[in-house]
Amino acid sequence: MSRRAIALPLAALVLAGALLGAYALAGGDDYSEVQGAADPCAARASVDRPVAPELEALAERVVLVGLDETACSLGVSRERLVLALPVAEDRRALAEELGISEDELGRELKAGLGRAVDRLDRAGRLPRASALLPAIVAELDLPGFAEDLVDAIPDQTVDSLVPTGPVLRRAVRSLDVQALLDGLGDSDQLESMLRDAVEEAAQEEIRARLLDELPESVRGLLGE
């Protein structure tokens, strides 16, 4: 091959090499990698932020930490779990993949939510009931006098009657996980289900605490 004949392929080789080198340096080697799932057993910045004093934010945080706890104990990513939970067929496939039954998967989820409440409580991340109360009252749209009445209750009384941690533990224990999973596709149904569970748990907690304050003889009279 003459020098002239070699020059053209050589120029093509140099151009191709320069382009590939430039693209590799510009990040072409790893651009196509998507964000990988983080280890659910490790601390996560987004769940360790302070929780806003609102029921919605609190419920979200419990669910997020609960998902991490469940995913960690099952040995899957939080994202894999989240994508599988709303669809019955995907739940079955995940349970099968993990070698457990769907009921066991539900129990794991419930246990994970329980551990989430414990973890947040230990870390002091659960807002006090007195801090949550104004937002709850605003949502209930109570008449003015009722709002004034609620405002008059000292924060200390509210916090001792409805301590956030025990109320949430009670709410998680009473959750019908199967119904919860079936309602995941409908945000309104899910919200009302969670609200009902928390309200019921709060009432039971108040009742239990008030009864505890009463003398045993009076409790006997009340049939407790």
């Binding site: 093509a12 080789l13 590939l20 072409g28 651009y31």
Partner: peptide, 15 residues
């Protein structure tokens, strides 16, 4: 060579 280089660069797109 030019076609091969161009195609390999399309496999290395940085964005």
């Amino acid at each position: 060579i030019a076609v091969a280089g161009g195609l390999a660069a399309l496999a290395l797109l940085p964005g």
